Simulated scan of single mutants.
Amino acid sequence: MEGVSVARETSAQVVEAVSVAARGVVNGRVVGVDRLRGGSKKGVYRVRFDGGSSVVVYRWAAEENFWPEVAEVDVFADASGMDLFLAAGRVLDEVGVRTPRVLAVGVDVVVVEDVSGGTLESVLGTDRARVALGDLARFLGAMRGRRSPGFGRVDRPLITGSSCERVVFDRAVRDLAEAAGRDGRVERAHDDLRELVVALRERVAPRAEYGLIHGELGPDHVLVGADGGAVLIDVEGLMFFDVEWEHVFLRLRFGPHYAPLACSDLDGARLDFYGLAMRLSLVAGPLRLLDGDFPDREFMVRVVERNLGEALALLP
């Protein structure tokens, strides 16, 4: 989800749970627990100690997840959980991609180093972004170079005998139908949008090898280390897939700052097809969240409006 910001109450029980986890790796007295801006599937907390040290605690629990339960239907579903986080971190370490160093693992809790230089999003357009963007481009190249004859999540058996474009097509059709049931504008344009989805899918040629992608790599999912380098976070969506899916999201989220991350060997037909499918996903997903008690409702409405406008603009 692009730039999700979640404001939530932090109960005394949660404060105690993350404090206990953090005290297992830092000697000292806890002087503060701050809920950090994070995604919609896990809690992210900075635990501060006397003397100035701090760590970050990731917590996976039902009350941290705002997404409604759905039957798992494809490789994108339910990209959350401690085991997936740890598996993704190991694979990224193998290819030379930097993530926050894991300090301790508990029950549905992981303690990591506090990379306190802020997000890449907060420094885009300044000199501070130059090193991090260079690192990120290098990371993307290393991930693209890690090839696989199957696709899917890194913690599960890889899928063969199908294709990424088939997965994206099925997902786009579901997203379109689901969004049409929640928004009259989508309902009225449903048939035309579905026809466009089919036409773009038919332009995509078969492929039998896939690269490693983060899956939701916006500038808010890249931290800036003390040395100015990039540190990837929210890595649970790591999978082998068409790298064009990653670059569609990168172009969407980095906008005018995407150029240093671009590569010349991407398939234009896949970019066009995945571009529309991504827009439909970013309409259906937020509409689904708005059915529940997600707190930052204005933000989600803006995501819907932006991506629906972009999708409708593609119609002839």
Rank of each mutant, 00 (worst) to 15 (best):
E2V: 09
E2F: 09
E2I: 12
G3C: 10
G3V: 09
S5Y: 13
V6Y: 05
E9L: 13
E9P: 10
T10S: 06
Q13T: 14
V14M: 06
E16R: 15
S19R: 02
G24F: 02
R37M: 10
G39H: 03
G39S: 00
K42F: 10
G43T: 01
Y45H: 06
Y45T: 02
R46K: 09
V47P: 01
S53T: 08
V55T: 00
V56H: 02
A62P: 01
E63H: 04
N65I: 02
F66K: 06
W67I: 05
P68L: 04
A71C: 10
V75F: 08
F76H: 03
A77G: 13
S80Q: 13
G81H: 00
G81M: 00
M82N: 05
M82V: 12
A87E: 12
G89L: 07
V95G: 08
G96M: 07
T99A: 12
R101T: 13
L103H: 05
G106D: 04
D108C: 05
V115R: 03
V115M: 11
T119K: 11
D127A: 15
A129N: 08
R130N: 13
L133M: 14
L133N: 10
F139Y: 15
G141R: 15
A142G: 05
M143V: 11
G145H: 06
R146T: 12
S148F: 12
F151W: 08
F151K: 04
F151N: 01
R153L: 15
V154I: 10
L158D: 00
I159Y: 00
R166T: 08
V168T: 01
A172V: 04
D175G: 01
D175E: 10
A177Y: 03
A179D: 03
G184C: 05
G184M: 08
H190T: 02
E195L: 11
L196N: 00
L196Q: 05
A199V: 09
A199M: 09
A205P: 01
P206N: 07
G215K: 12
D220R: 15
D220C: 13
L223P: 05
V224Y: 06
G225I: 03
G225M: 05
G225W: 04
A226S: 14
I233D: 01
D234N: 12
V235M: 09
V235P: 03
E236R: 05
F240H: 14
F240A: 01
D242Q: 08
E244T: 02
E244W: 01
W245L: 14
E246G: 08
H247V: 07
L250I: 15
R251A: 13
L252M: 15
G255W: 01
G255M: 06
H257D: 11
Y258M: 03
A262L: 08
S264Q: 10
A269V: 02
R270L: 08
D272E: 15
F273P: 02
Y274H: 07
A277F: 07
A277E: 06
R279F: 14
L280S: 07
L282T: 06
A284N: 08
G285T: 15
G285K: 13
R288S: 12
R288L: 14
D291C: 07
P295N: 01
R297K: 11
F299Q: 15
V301N: 13
V301Y: 12
R302K: 14
R302S: 15
V303E: 04
V303S: 00
E310P: 04
A311R: 07
L314G: 02
